[in-house]
């Protein structure tokens, strides 16, 4: 097995007296989809915020390509090749697809910030990148507001990859979408996986989705890793069990019946 592209070793994060993460280990390999599962409050959000530079760990280490890194800001994480696609996607609905794609990183001729936009070139790149990832944007000048949720998700992913992400963190990318659009996003993830050089961290609540696409799983509960493994090593029943935070279904049934 090659070296993980990003890994965390005994990562701990405390907010005052509250321990959000307690000694998390995580290894993410390129060309793989790594599902990060856990109930609300399990520490998923804190973990991805540390990976994307929003929070700094209290103790423990982060490693990119085996080298220790310290992210002081989201910008540091982006520069290290970690692209985070948040649930709100950081898209502007009234602006065109192209202007969103290049937002804050426009191509221009002349002196910043009054440089003249190279609109045609940006349109072409946007169209090409979106097509590559499986969505044919007929008009790059169309407003993002007219796109479906799945298309927006894809736009945000294509943008992160184009600007150099080697690790993509997708925060519940399927949660707010309809069935068909969810499949759209899963297909997009599989296409990115097929590039072979990009790792995806897939945060989800959805057991079915994670089993459809993920190569490797990490389960969190109450700030700790309660299970991990490859798709092959985990039986379906384990996944369900671990997703419920380690509580056996039988116990749940028992408790429910007692009420």
């Amino acid at each position: 097995m090659s070296e993980p592209v990003i890994s965390a070793k005994s990562l701990t994060k405390r907010f005052g007296a509250f321990t959000a993460l307690n000694g998390i280990d995580l290894e993410v390999y390129k060309g793989e989809i790594h599902a990060l599962l856990g109930d609300n409050g399990a520490g998923k959000s804190t973990l991805i915020k540390i990976l994307s530079g929003v929070h700094q760990p209290t103790s423990g280490g982060l490693f990119v390509d085996g080298k220790p890194v310290l992210f002081q800001s989201p910008r540091d994480a982006t520069n290290a090749g970690i692209g985070t696609v948040y649930q709100d996607l950081a898209l502007n609905p009234l602006m065109s697809v192209t202007r969103n794609f290049f937002m804050g990183r426009e191509l221009y001729t002349g002196v910043r910030p009054f440089g003249v936009l190279r609109m045609k070139e940006m349109d072409e790149i946007t169209h090409a990148e979106m097509t590559k990832i499986g969505i044919n944007v007929s008009d790059p000048a169309q407003a993002v507001g007219t796109m479906s949720g799945g298309q927006r998700q894809t736009l945000a992913i294509a943008r992160a990859i184009y600007f150099g992400a080697k690790v993509l963190i997708l925060d519940e990318p399927t949660s707010a979408l309809g069935q068909k659009q969810q499949m759209e996003v899963l297909k997009t993830m599989m296409r990115v996986r097929a590039y072979g050089n990009i790792a995806i961290i897939f945060i989800t609540h959805n057991e079915v989705h994670s089993k459809l696409v993920a190569d490797r799983f990490t389960f969190l509960a109450l700030g700790e890793v309660i299970g991990k493994g490859t798709k092959a090593s985990l039986a379906s029943e384990d996944i369900r069990h671990l997703m419920a935070g380690g509580v056996a279904m039988a116990d749940l049934e028992h408790e429910l019946a007692a009420i």
Binding site: M95, R99, G104, E106, P113, F114, L117
Partner: peptide, 9 residues
């Protein structure tokens, strides 16, 4: 221009 895009954004 670039700053125009920033104003919209």
């Amino acid at each position: 221009t670039q700053v125009g895009s920033w104003i919209f954004a």
